[in-house]
Design a binder for these strands. Structure first.
Lengths: 109, 109
DNA sequence: CAGGATCCAATGAGATACTG
DNA sequence: CAGTATCTCATTGGATCCTG
């Protein structure tokens, strides 16, 4: 994974780097729903319920460029595109586990 | 810890909740520098080098309201204010550990 | 010393409409 | 089906100046 881009780079801070990769309203959920499952654009859109096309495709694009998600387009009509987690995406999701647990505990969920 | 506020709340997602607490350019670092140490405003400003007053005080305020940081003001002249991690702040920092490690590994640092 | 007040630029998110 | 194009609005980060 070569380069991450940030508006204001001070990414000598690893926290910031990792957080930057998943901050955005839909990114953590994208990782989650893609766990163990390859999904098409329409599936993702349905699972993330009220997301707009623009925001979803931007998030997918971001995460694809950052190597967290793989994108496979089939040359068919109608078009079909499948998204899945890459190994990096999977390990990032795992690394997020403690954070999720913390939130659940502190928030009493 | 009662309530977190988000622009667009869909915080039925724990990831999003925890990430929201530490997204912001300086927040992860604030947690880090306050580990094991109580610091004054000026100390923090120095350690976070090129941060502006507005952004630093906003971050401190945020995190204080969210119960991650404690703020103690002394009624003296000149004013003195000390910041420290709360237990929640400490446990959040720990929960961020795997994320930091992930970033270091994936980024080869 | 520890900030609040103000102003600005850049980014993020959403709604809607349109297309190969 | 899987997006892109446009537009709008809210939030973020930063610079600068000011103050109890």
């Amino acid at each position: 994974m070569a380069q991450y881009t940030f508006r204001t780079r001070s990414s000598d801070c690893p926290y910031e780097l990792a957080i930057g990769l998943v901050s955005g309203r839909w990114k953590p959920r994208l990782l989650e729903v893609l766990k163990d499952e390859t999904l098409r654009y329409g599936d993702l859109k349905e699972r993330l319920k009220p997301v707009s096309d623009k925001v979803l495709s931007a998030a997918l694009d971001d995460m694809t460029r950052n190597g967290l998600i793989s994108r496979t387009a089939f040359a068919e009509i109608p078009p079909r595109v499948e998204y899945a987690l890459t190994p990096q995406g999977e390990s990032l999701l795992e690394a997020l586990g403690p954070l999720r647990d913390w939130a659940r505990t502190e928030n009493g969920r």
